[in-house]
């Protein structure tokens, strides 16, 4: 038996865990499919929307609004897929108890949760940002016109970036619920419940502070990030961004605390 010396170079760190999570994610077909759909669907939908609409060439502002609406009007499609992606990255560990080996090679479990969070967050961000840019540019090119829509137009980059940031946050929160519930269906239900049902219920309470608190929950807080213009009564872009980051961090903290304590 030949034995490679694994002694002095072997060490456990976050870089190694990140690489490991990347290899794991690549090894599952469900994740490959979800990622392919997250990238492809917005582009396909955008092209289909523009080519089937009979909008005559309008003003520059009209063209920009139309091109941007192909992104902002359909952003819930990649978002739902991102929620599933985040969920599966966590719940695949609970398929047949695979997590016991994961936590045997990395007994400080917090680092595993963080590696997965980085993987889900960065993947969701990039996989929703780039296709949205492509979808917008394709829509702009197909719409044509004398003065076509460009990326530099007001609101365009803010909406595309804001959409991607919310997707990254929602993906990480879904991953957290995946760890907490250890069930795919439970995690998707809990995530949608937290993002949308809880704030809707809270906003029914006629107390101003409660209403404001409800609007900081990432579901409603995503509105000023994802929509052109600034609807009345919503948080500002910066406040919404801070709220989403804080909620994501809180979900991660809770998850780390629970996962560390729980028997596997």
């Amino acid at each position: 038996m030949t034995t490679t010396d694994t002694g002095p170079t072997a060490r456990l760190d976050l870089t190694g865990l990140l690489r490991s999570e990347l290899i794991k994610a690549r090894g599952l077909r469900s994740i490959q499919w979800l990622l392919a759909l997250i990238v492809a669907l917005p582009i396909v939908i955008s092209v289909l929307t523009v080519t089937t609409s009979d909008a005559a060439a309008g003003t520059h502002e009209e063209l920009t609004a139309l091109a941007l609406s192909t992104v902002s009007g359909t952003n819930w499609i990649p978002l739902l897929l991102v929620l599933m992606l985040g969920t599966i990255v966590a719940t695949a560990e609970y398929e047949r108890g695979a997590v016991q080996m994961t936590f045997t090679v990395a007994p400080r479990r917090t680092a595993v949760v963080l590696a997965k969070a980085i993987l889900v967050g960065v993947t969701s961000l990039v996989a929703t940002f780039l296709p949205a840019v492509v979808a917008y540019l394709l829509a702009a090119a197909l719409l044509g016109g004398d003065d076509p829509a460009t990326l530099g137009d007001p609101d365009v980059l803010r909406v595309i970036t804001g959409t991607a940031l919310y997707a990254a946050s929602a993906g990480v929160i879904a991953m957290c619920f995946g760890f907490l519930t250890r069930s795919s269906i439970g995690a998707v239900t809990a995530t949608i419940g937290f993002l949308y049902a809880v704030p809707a219920l809270l906003q029914a309470i006629p107390v101003e502070a409660v209403g404001w608190f409800a609007r900081t929950i990432p579901g409603p807080a995503s509105t000023p990030l994802e929509l052109p213009g600034h609807p009345e009564g919503d948080l500002t872009f910066t406040t919404a961004l801070i709220a989403i980051v804080l909620w994501t961090a809180a979900a991660l903290l809770l998850t780390c605390a629970v996962v560390r304590r729980r028997d596997v």
Binding site: G16, S20, I23, K24, L28, S30, R96, A98, M101, V105
Partner: peptide, 19 residues
Amino acid sequence: AVHPGRTARNYLDALAATH
């Protein structure tokens, strides 16, 4: 306790990568 959808190689590669 291995995800049935992975290959043996993928499983071991992921474990080796951690260290």
